[in-house]
């Protein structure tokens, strides 16, 4: 698979795979990042579906050399120990007490709440990357039947914990934010905490499923989280 390597500003390099959402590309990007991330001259690396952006500490002097090194790193079938991935199950309450948009979403899609819940909780979603907000996970892929155009006028406030649908994507707002997606559910699970040594529990390549729970149970989970005695349901496997 051809990878296009170009400069990005004075200190950046961009690696581009074909523009598709694909787990094979995700694992190639993750492999490259694992291979090079300890290099001293690299300040930061982040990626989206099909592009990796490397920021170097200093202005790039010899791009051709850098490019060759990256091409070599891409070909390196370094024996990296198989990464352990985790399948997380997120409790969600699909109830308009938590999400003011739910009614509007169901009306516009002309589907029943039970159908929405069935179609939204059925897939196993792959975590592709984090972007938009700290801890906002880009997940693939939503059932086509649930896709809806984003609001033409974004809402001023979508509450932290809102599970939402926008276009063909679904995701969870990790903090209060304006946004153009339709809120369809609520989870009390936190996706990012800058005050903890491990900022987030989910990483690219992990899997996520949603589980429908009643309002009482959600409030119970919320209390348990506050007391620090709640663990997200998860299952580990060698990826």
């Amino acid at each position: 698979m051809k990878v296009n390597i170009t400069r990005y500003g004075t200190k950046g390099v961009l690696l581009q795979w074909p523009p598709i959402i694909d787990e094979g590309i995700l694992s190639k990007m993750t492999h490259l990042i694992d291979t090079i991330k300890e290099e001293d001259n690299i300040l930061d690396i982040h990626h989206a579906y099909h592009e990796v952006l490397i920021q170097y500490r200093n202005t790039i002097q010899n791009f051709n050399q850098l490019k060759q090194n990256l091409q070599a790193a891409l070909l390196k079938h370094k024996k990296v120990k198989p990464t352990q991935t985790t399948h997380w199950t997120i409790p969600v309450c699909y109830d308009d007490d938590f999400v003011p948009d739910l009614e509007r979403y169901l009306d516009r899609k002309e589907i029943r709440l039970s159908e929405l819940i069935a179609l939204h909780t059925r897939p196993t979603y792959t975590v592709y990357f984090t972007g938009f907000l700290p801890g906002f996970l880009y997940l693939g892929t939503l059932d086509d039947k649930l896709a809806i155009n984003r609001k033409s006028k974004p809402s001023r406030l979508i509450k932290a914990g809102t599970v939402a649908i926008g276009g063909t994507q679904t995701g969870i707002y990790p903090q209060d934010s304006p946004g153009g997606w339709y809120g369809i559910g609520y989870t009390p699970i936190s996706f990012f905490n800058p005050r903890l040594p491990i900022l987030t529990w989910a990483k690219p390549g992990d899997k996520i499923s949603f589980e429908s729970v009643e309002k009482d149970r959600i409030l119970h989970i919320k209390r348990a989280i506050r007391k620090g005695d709640y663990t997200i349901k998860s299952e580990k496997y060698e990826g």
Partner: peptide
């Protein structure tokens, strides 16, 4: 914060 982009941190 120069090294937290992968977590979505500006």
């Amino acid at each position: 914060r120069s090294s937290y982009a992968k977590y979505g941190v500006p």
